[in-house]
């Protein structure tokens, strides 16, 4: 996995609440057996009309947001289906950080597995960042994972919380499976004990 370095980039505003994973990547794109290449279909039904033409009003189609790296979104982002195609599409587009007041559970943990940092902040702060994002490409936001701080284009700083283990993995680009396999002994002894206690499993 790619390391999450300090990010300075364009933030796009998506104030809509309850953006679900069907909106992020519609099911027609779930038929792939690969992880890559989904970025062009990110938010497909909001982004293109039926004939495949771009809908100019959609935020990521606007010239100033084409290189968006940070998304500031409405409440409960990523709800619905567990499809990891959603974070794959987001990452493939080039977005590395999503900021909202709340995220759906599975989506939240899927982000970390794909080098995306989801940040939860209180409503008032998300509102300020949303306004900052409205300014377009002249306004660059900075996300510093090491320091756990977001800096707006005006220099206002917002600290954020992140799980220490997940932070460590993101900063170092670590693969969960490799880390868990180092604990093979603990898993083995759990299985031995389970064979005694709950043999029917």
């Amino acid at each position: 996995m790619e390391k999450f370095e300090k990010l300075q980039g364009i933030a796009a505003p998506m104030p809509l609440v309850n953006i679900d994973t069907d909106m992020i990547i519609p099911k027609v794109f779930l038929k792939t057996i690969k992880r890559s290449g989904l970025g062009v279909n990110l938010f497909d039904e909001m982004r293109y009309d039926r004939d495949g033409n771009e809908i100019p009003d959609f935020v990521l189609n606007k010239p100033q947001y084409r290189d968006t790296q940070i998304l500031v979104a409405g409440d409960n982002f990523g709800c619905g289906s567990s499809r990891e195609h959603a974070p794959w599409a987001i990452a493939d587009f080039g977005i590395k950080c999503v900021i909202s007041t709340s995220f759906a559970d599975i989506f939240f943990s899927n982000c970390f597995k794909n080098g995306i940092l989801p940040i939860v902040l209180p409503k008032e702060q998300v509102d300020i960042l949303m306004q900052d994002a409205e300014k377009g490409s002249n306004a660059r936001m900075t996300v510093d994972l090491e320091a756990q701080e977001i800096t707006t284009s005006d220099g206002e700083v917002f600290p954020f919380e992140v799980d220490s283990f997940k932070k460590h993995c993101l900063l170092n680009g670590l693969d969960d499976i490799g880390l868990t396999m180092e604990k093979a002994d603990a898993i083995k002894s759990f299985e031995d004990k389970m064979a005694m206690d709950r043999p029917w499993v």
Binding site: R35, S82, I106, N110, K113, N114, I177
Partner: peptide, 8 residues
């Protein structure tokens, strides 16, 4: 769970 977790 997501696909990375399926693999895990």
């Amino acid at each position: 769970i997501g696909t990375s977790e399926v693999e895990h």
